[in-house]
C-alpha cells in the first residue's frame, strides 16, 4: 500500500518519536508512506479561533498537494486530521470559498483525496495480519487507550464511534496487552488551552491520569502529539500543581505495536518520554 503522509509540525519536534515509530512500523508492515512535499501547517485551533478563511485555506493547500500526487493521505496528529477533514467538507459545500482558495493559490482542489487518521490506516492493514507479526507479546501489560476529542469528534468528521471508540483497543489487543474499560477515553486533554489557559488544561490532564490509573492501567496509549505532550511531558507540572504523584507512561500506539513486533525500543523513540516507560514494561519482562 502507498499512501501520502502528512506528519504535521509537532512530529518534527516535540513529538518526533511519534514520527520515528510511525515510519518504522509502517515500513515493517509494508505500507509505503510518501511525504507530501512542501506541506504547511494546518493552522490548528489558532486559525479556526481567529479567521474562518485561514482555517480552511491553510489545510486546503495540503489537500491540493496530495491530490496532485494522486494519493490519499494518512495523518498521525488528531488535530491536523480534524482540520484537514473539516477543510474538505467546507470546500465541498461552499463553492464561493473553494473558488477563493483556488484563486489565491493559483490551482484548484478537485476534492478527490481521502483523508485517513493513522489509526484507520493501521487498522486497515487487518488485525490478523498485525497479530501475525507479534513476536514479543506484551502479556501482563494493562493499558488505557486514549482517543481524546478531535480523532473521534464531531460525528461525520472524526473516525470511529464518537462516544465509545474501540478501534485502538482492538489494535492494541493484537499485542496481547490488556486494555482497560474506562470513562475518560474520549475526554479532552485541553491541548488548545495549554499555553493560553494552562490551569484549566492541567486539570483536564489530571482527571484523565486519575481515571486511567483508577481503572488499573499501567500505561496510556494515545494517537495524538498534543495529547501525548499534555499527558506525558506535563505530568510533572500536574503533580506539582495538584500534589499528586502520577508516573504513568504514555505511548503512541505505533510505539507499542513496534515493541511487540520486536523492534528496537530506542529506534521507536522510547527513550524520549518524560515518564520512563521502562518500569511499566518490566511487567512484560522489558
Amino acid at each position: 500500500m502507498r499512501i501520502g503522509y502528512y506528519p504535521g509540525c509537532s512530529l518534527q519536534s516535540s513529538a518526533r518519536e511519534y514520527d520515528l515509530a510511525t515510519r518504522l512500523v509502517t515500513r515493517y508492515l509494508g505500507v509505503q508512506l510518501v511525504d507530501i512535499p512542501d506541506w504547511n501547517c494546518c493552522g490548528a485551533s489558532a486559525a479556526h479561533s481567529t479567521d474562518p478563511f485561514l482555517a480552511v485555506a491553510l489545510p486546503a493547500r495540503n489537500l491540493i498537494l496530495a491530490s496532485e500526487m494522486g494519493l490519499d493521505v494518512t495523518v498521525p496528529c488528531a488535530a491536523c486530521y480534524h482540520r484537514l477533514r473539516v477543510a474538505q467538507r467546507e470546500l465541498t459545500h461552499d463553492r464561493d470559498l473553494s473558488e477563493k482558495v483556488a484563486e489565491v493559490l493559483g490551482r484548484p482542489y478537485r476534492g478527490t483525496v481521502r483523508i485517513y487518521s493513522l489509526l484507520e490506516t493501521m487498522t486497515g492493514i487487518g488485525l490478523e495480519q498485525l497479530a501475525a507479526q507479534i513476536v514479543r507479546p506484551l502479556k501482563g501489560l494493562r493499558v488505557a487507550c486514549y482517543y481524546g476529542c478531535l480523532l473521534v469528534r464531531p460525528p461525520g468528521i472524526g473516525c470511529d464511534d464518537p462516544e465509545n471508540p474501540e478501534s485502538m483497543d482492538r489494535l492494541v489487543e493484537t499485542t496481547k496487552a490488556e486494555t482497560v474499560s474506562w470513562g475518560y477515553k474520549n475526554e479532552c486533554c485541553g491541548g488548545a488551552l495549554i499555553f493560553g489557559a494552562r490551569e484549566v488544561a492541567l486539570r483536564l490532564v489530571r482527571d484523565i491520569l486519575r481515571n486511567a490509573t483508577g481503572a488499573g492501567a499501567h500505561a496510556i496509549v494515545c494517537a495524538c502529539p498534543l495529547c501525548q505532550s499534555n499527558l506525558d511531558l506535563r505530568q510533572g507540572q500536574v503533580n506539582k500543581m495538584f500534589g499528586t504523584n502520577f508516573a504513568v507512561p504514555v505511548f503512541y500506539f505505533p510505539q507499542l505495536l513496534g515493541l511487540a513486533m520486536g523492534l528496537n525500543p530506542r529506534d521507536l523513540g522510547l527513550t524520549t518520554h518524560f515518564v520512563d516507560p521502562q518500569r511499566a514494561l518490566r511487567v512484560v519482562g522489558g
Partner: peptide
C-alpha cells in the same frame, strides 16, 4: 492569553510555513 498564543502561532506559520515550536 489564548488570543496572544493564537496570534503568535499564526505569525509563526506566516513566517515559516510550519509552526516553529
Amino acid at each position: 492569553g489564548v488570543v496572544l498564543f493564537n496570534d503568535l502561532f499564526l505569525l509563526s506559520v506566516r513566517r515559516n510555513g510550519r509552526v516553529f515550536e
